[in-house]
């Protein structure tokens, strides 16, 4: 079996807190994995360690055949991993277009000469990417495609979430890590957002997704498999129907010992 992402014995501590405790987690290509668990169980930390924001204190992470345990955030992105953040991290004074383009970094020519002097070529590159950004955001909210050069600061949370997901998707990553993408949304908005994400995935069959989400109906509907964390340890794994009836999982969520 070849894994797209393979974490083995992954450990990360914060002082006395063991946020990830000897975690084994594997993802095969084209899967949608639900990463669930009570608050503080280490889901966000897992994303942060994979994407190089925090180092690991033990274990290894392999992505697409390469060891990325000690790779920088930059290198992980270039390898094909994109993410969103639990607490929205858009650049508020910048426009919708600019925010999406930040995610497109690896497909934009970053040469000084190209950017400053070859304005004709730059313009062609700009137009191709402008079209791509529009096409992508139209999947989520056509209204936003008409407002590409407005600052995101004035937009409601649901639009910001959409833009953040577009920023993660624009570079056509192999793996998308979604950290509570629907936080702060209503039930209907959440459903709409997920449908849009699935629609993008239908366009790009190579996309693999790991999603952290609290709404279990949604997890049940869209995931192929779930991994349940508690205190940084994996306590259950399998299709949602199976983990949902697991005794340990129920105890973790109810907080009984």
């Amino acid at each position: 079996m070849t894994y797209l992402l393979e974490a083995r014995g992954l450990t990360r501590k914060f002082g006395g807190v063991v946020a990830l405790d000897n975690l084994d987690l594997t993802v095969v290509p084209n899967e949608i994995i639900g990463l669930i668990g009570p608050n503080g169980s280490g889901k966000t930390t897992f994303f942060n360690v994979v994407t190089g924001i925090y180092g690991a204190h033990g274990g290894s992470v392999t992505f697409d055949g390469a060891d990325i345990t000690r790779a920088s955030s930059r290198a992980v992105y270039h390898a094909g991993v994109s993410r969103t953040f639990q607490r929205s991290r858009l650049s508020l004074p910048l426009s919708i277009f600019d925010n999406i383009m930040i995610g497109n970094h690896k497909r934009l020519n970053q040469g000084l000469w190209f950017n400053l002097v070859r304005r004709g070529e730059f313009k062609r590159e700009f137009e191709v990417n402008y079209a791509a950004a529009r096409t992508l955001i139209e999947v989520f909210e056509p209204r936003l495609a008409e407002r590409m050069f407005e600052p995101v600061a004035g937009l409601p949370m649901i639009d910001r979430r959409r833009i953040e997901i577009c920023r993660a998707l624009i570079s056509q990553p192999k793996l998308l890590l979604l950290d509570e993408p629907s936080a702060g949304m209503t039930h209907d908005e959440t459903k709409e957002l997920m449908d849009d994400i699935l629609q993008v995935r239908d366009l790009n069959r190579n996309l693999t997704i790991v999603i952290v989400e609290h709404e279990m109906g949604l997890i049940e509907r869209i995931t192929d498999r779930c991994v349940v964390l508690n205190f940084g340890r994996k306590i259950a794994e399998g299709p949602y129907r199976q983990v949902a009836v697991d005794r340990q999982v129920q105890e973790a969520y109810l907080g009984v010992e």
């Binding site: 190089g52 955030s73 930059r74 992105y77 970094h105 400053l116």
Partner: peptide
Amino acid sequence: RRLERSWIGLDLDAIRLDETAASCFGLD
């Protein structure tokens, strides 16, 4: 002007506003 209206201008803004997010999208 040209610097601002280029990908480099965008890069500079991105790192000024949020270094962590910027490095998660490959910026050096």
